[in-house]
């Protein structure tokens, strides 16, 4: 757990203990509360950057971030690409539609080929759970999991946590309702792991086949996970509501009629009133208005959806900086200070 003094000096918040260095970001589950808190704290100056007219830093100048999206993605890919660009890094892009995957190349060969182009890290999304770990075990460079199958989506949970912490001041002991297809949601898993480590109490509401009992076993010590049949029960007393996307593209699963979903599980203004008055509404996107969420809620004062998007940039900048920036080069050593300066200038 000992960190270098250099690294401690880099933190914008001198009081924050510097936890064990991360090499990869494969999932939230193995992280400690200290590591998570550190990353959220590190995100603060990068949040400020987003409000500055000149958003580009030179922190990662000369570095290259490979974006390997084996599964279609718009927002996460753009978010990581923008985060890298605003740190001054170059990016290389691999997209499933145009890649040699279509020609039958294995993931291992594709990853090794990308690696041979000498990027400094790989940001990876893939439809198979464990795919990021698979690549991380076989390459030297850091791998960031931008979503692996139905396993984890760690940066989504980090940006959600940053959003919640900003609005509520703390993550400790909140009542969190997660609504929808939880079984197949990597966002839900990462959120359960992250907020669970801070002692949040979860209530999971959704169609019973997508909220199986086994989910309760994900609860870390000091956290409780309760499943309810009706989302009204999940909403009562909630401080935070995470609405999941309805994934209609699921294989091997008979779809639920959308009208049924809307009838029982849509987050409407009436249902939202069951939650605490100041309850936050989060959605990982892409959001389908009128399906899982009523437009009035999506656009209402409790909705954090656009903040989440902006915070995604900050969290991803902080993570890239942590994984490939903060160590050796002098250009990187100035980063947080630079970010702080830029933020101050913006005020």
């Amino acid at each position: 757990m000992s960190a270098s003094p250099d690294r401690a000096a880099l933190t914008t918040f001198p009081g924050t203990p510097v936890p064990q260095r991360l090499h990869h970001m494969l999932g939230i589950e193995p992280l400690t509360v200290e590591q998570i808190t550190f990353l959220l704290d590190q995100s603060k100056p990068f949040q400020e950057i987003q409000r500055h007219p000149l958003k580009k830093l030179a922190t990662l100048r000369g570095k290259t971030v490979a974006l390997a999206f084996f599964e279609p993605s718009t927002r996460t890919r753009i978010s990581f690409g923008t985060a890298a660009a605003r740190l001054g890094s170059d990016t290389m892009n691999l997209q499933a539609e145009v890649s040699s995957l279509r020609k039958g190349e294995s993931l291992l060969d594709t990853a090794r080929t990308l690696d041979a182009m000498k990027p400094d890290c790989i940001v990876m999304r893939h439809s198979a759970s464990g795919a990021a770990e698979f690549v991380a075990r076989r390459l030297e460079i850091p791998v960031i999991n931008a979503g692996d199958g139905t396993h984890e989506h760690p940066t989504q949970a980090l940006l959600d946590a940053l959003t919640i912490r900003d609005r509520r001041g703390s993550l400790e002991g909140l009542n969190v309702a997660i609504l929808g297809d939880i079984l197949h949601s990597r966002v839900a898993r990462s959120n359960l792991h992250l907020l669970g480590k801070f002692g949040c109490r979860f209530t999971l509401g959704g169609p019973a086949m997508w909220v199986p009992r086994e989910l309760e076993s994900l609860a870390p010590p000091g956290c409780s996970i309760r499943r309810v049949a009706r989302i009204e029960q999940a909403l009562e007393g909630a401080d935070v509501i995470i609405v999941l996307r309805v994934q209609q593209e699921r294989q091997h699963e008979s779809a639920l009629a959308l009208a049924e979903y809307i009838l029982l599980y849509q987050l409407t203004p009436e249902r939202l009133r069951l939650a605490r008055p100041e309850a936050l509404v989060l959605h990982p996107g892409p959001m389908i208005r009128g399906l899982e969420i009523d437009p009035a809620v999506a656009d209402g004062p409790q909705s954090c959806v656009l903040e989440q998007v902006t915070n995604g940039l900050a969290v991803r900048m902080a993570l890239l900086f942590e994984l490939i920036g903060s160590a050796q080069t002098e250009s990187s050593a100035v980063a947080p200070a630079q970010a702080k300066d830029a933020a101050d200038a913006a005020r």
């Binding site: 759970s129 464990g130 199958g149 396993h151 984890e152 898993r189 086994e214 994900l218």
Partner: peptide, 18 residues
């Protein structure tokens, strides 16, 4: 069994494997 790659249980739910 369609699409499944392991036994259903706590571990499959944790790993996100069918």
């Amino acid at each position: 069994a369609a699409g499944a790659v392991m036994r259903e249980g706590n571990q499959s739910v944790r790993l996100g494997l069918r």
